[in-house]
């Protein structure tokens, strides 16, 4: 009885080891394939970042510049795009799969660093923008409403960095269509666009 138990235990152990040896390579291959698949899909797109449109909001030019520069930095960090081009870059004409990132300021609360330091609860600098990834023909592919705030510590311009980080994060999390599709295939009607608010 004891011997049969031992044999059965041994068989189970052998089976477990065999399964473990056989399956992980398949799993890791699947993972690698899937991750390379997503990377390759995304890496084929390039993005051109347009200057920030202040809309009707009285936003200081330095904030607009800071958002623009921070967006370029943060989008580069995501490694989601083959190239991140600047507004007006002549090389954009030669890039086949190009998305254009348009940023429009919707809401801005000019805070105060001193007020934050003194009261803690007031003086927050708040920024809300609408970010749109568009195809060359103007069709919207991704649209997000994103916030960037400084509530406690840091200068007012820190809000622009936080905002750009959130925009890049939202774009990274969103699924982009295959770049080989034509712009009209890739495009989604604005009615179908899901607006996600990140706070």
């Amino acid at each position: 009885m004891k011997a049969s138990n031992r044999v059965s235990l041994l068989l189970v152990a052998v089976a477990v080891v065999t399964i473990n040896v056989a399956h992980p390579p398949q799993l890791s291959a699947e993972n690698a394939a899937s991750s390379s698949g997503t990377n390759s899909t995304a890496a084929q797109w390039s993005v051109q970042v347009d200057k920030v449109d202040p809309g009707d909001v009285a936003l200081a030019p330095s904030f607009q510049i800071a958002i623009y520069e921070s967006l370029l930095d943060e989008l580069n960090k995501t490694k989601r795009f083959k190239q991140v081009l600047r507004d007006g870059d002549r090389n954009a004409g030669d890039v086949s799969d190009l998305l254009i990132l348009k940023t429009t300021v919707q809401k801005y609360t000019a805070g105060s660093e001193t007020r934050r330091a003194v009261t803690t609860v007031s003086g927050a600098t708040k920024l809300t923008v609408r970010s749109q990834l568009r195809a060359r023909d103007g069709h919207i592919i991704v649209e997000r409403t994103v916030n960037g705030n400084v509530r406690f510590m840091g200068s007012n311009l820190r809000a622009t960095h936080n905002l750009a980080h959130n925009v890049a994060k939202a774009i990274k999390q969103s699924s982009l269509p295959e770049p080989s599709h034509s712009a009209s295939h890739a495009a989604i009607d604005s009615d179908q666009v899901v607006v996600v608010e990140l706070r």
Partner: peptide, 29 residues
């Protein structure tokens, strides 16, 4: 907090917009 009331200073900011050789817009503050 009381110290914070007095421990601040006003600065000027200078923001530049300039273009590189490819026509790409840059900003610096």
């Amino acid at each position: 907090r009381a110290v914070s009331l007095f421990a601040h200073k006003n600065y000027d900011t200078l923001a530049l917009e300039y273009v590189d050789s490819n026509g790409g817009m840059h900003g610096a503050i």
